[in-house]
Design a protein around this nucleic acid. Structure first.
Lengths: 199, 199
DNA sequence: GTCTATAGCACGATAGAC
DNA sequence: GTCTATCGTGCTATAGAC
């Protein structure tokens, strides 16, 4: 509790309420369909206040998805403990983040990326530069194969995210991390370190 | 009376032009973001004409995605020729359909399913009842495992579709069907017929 | 069959009162 | 810090003239 509780100058917790409502609404409807008015209603404040605190809708979205989780911290955990379990551990780490409250920001980004060009670019650059490169760089793979391996991992992870968090297809939507790590982990493992032409 | 093959005003195939424009626009922007006005502009007709031919926007969308490809015809081809190559053949069949012109309707459905509840339901029901069940029913699997196997296949195929057609992540976006069949095929194969807990 | 005009609504954003 | 009022825009959908 290093932070002082109670009121802070110029920033009462109305701001936090708006941010939380924005995260939830963006996650549920995507950038375009989530209106400032709906976010304000969910937060129990006036729509004008949202603009007052965050400026434009795009700025609010950026504040919403400026994730409180740094991939640079997670990647070492994925890589530690043996090259042969990287796939399973990657799935577990992914689920741990996305199943947690902060995961709603990620869902918002994924949902928005589908119907919105600049959010798609945001997601793609984040994936490539922050996540895939980090993992793949430390496995000393054939450099010529790295882009394909990374993209294949992205297809499986993105598909898992879509089905579990957006489309909510059962039983994947409610399956345990253990089940998913056991079934999907080997796929990631093969995409990363296995042969690229046969199982 | 040589009136029936007139190219421009008084055009009989205006309807087809609208349908084609709608397919392209829905595929590119999704249901919500694709406006009737934009579709009409792309087709070179008046927006009111779109309503005249197709009624509401939702009815137009349904006409757009009422696909000219019947899964019942494709599934036997996937299953024929040996149980061990089902995975690879499923990937090949999928790509053949989605890379073709009629695939734009599928892209439209996928894109819309993310930011729109009733289209998501449309897609989910189509997946479950038309595609997954058909494939999975004919491989005499443990009935208890069928839902999970089907959903796992869905994650990989949906992720492939997302990255190749929506996010356009390279090199998956432009990879050859051969490459993708060789790399992703084994994943599908394992989800369908392999052990569910190890690679 | 085709188009003009417009009703009716929701949105993002701003100005300015309290 | 919070809210009322409103501007300008874009949308679906309809009514009705040619």
């Amino acid at each position: 509790m290093a932070r002082r509780t109670g009121r802070r100058p110029g920033n009462p917790d109305t701001r936090e309420a708006i941010l939380a409502a924005a995260r939830a609404t963006f996650a549920e409807r995507g950038f375009d369909a989530a209106s400032i008015r709906a976010i304000a209603a969910a937060a129990g404040v006036d729509p004008a206040l949202v603009h007052h605190y965050f400026g434009t809708k795009e700025e609010l979205f950026r504040a919403t998805v400026s994730i409180p989780v740094d991939p640079a911290e997670l990647v070492p955990g994925v890589l530690a403990g043996g090259r042969d379990e990287v796939g399973e551990r990657l799935v577990r780490t992914f689920l741990a983040v996305w199943d947690s409250p902060v995961g709603t920001a990620a869902v918002a980004l994924l949902r928005s990326a589908v119907s919105n060009q600049w959010t798609a670019r945001l997601l793609r650059e984040f994936l490539v530069t922050q996540v895939l490169r980090r993992v793949v760089d430390q496995l000393d793979l054939d450099p010529a194969e790295v882009p394909l391996r990374g993209a294949l991992v992205a297809t499986q992870i993105a598909g898992l995210a879509m089905m579990r968090y957006v489309i909510r297809l059962e039983p994947v939507a409610t399956a345990s991390p253990d089940t998913l790590a056991a079934t999907i982990g080997p796929t990631i493992q093969r995409y990363l370190t296995g042969p690229l032409d046969a199982g």
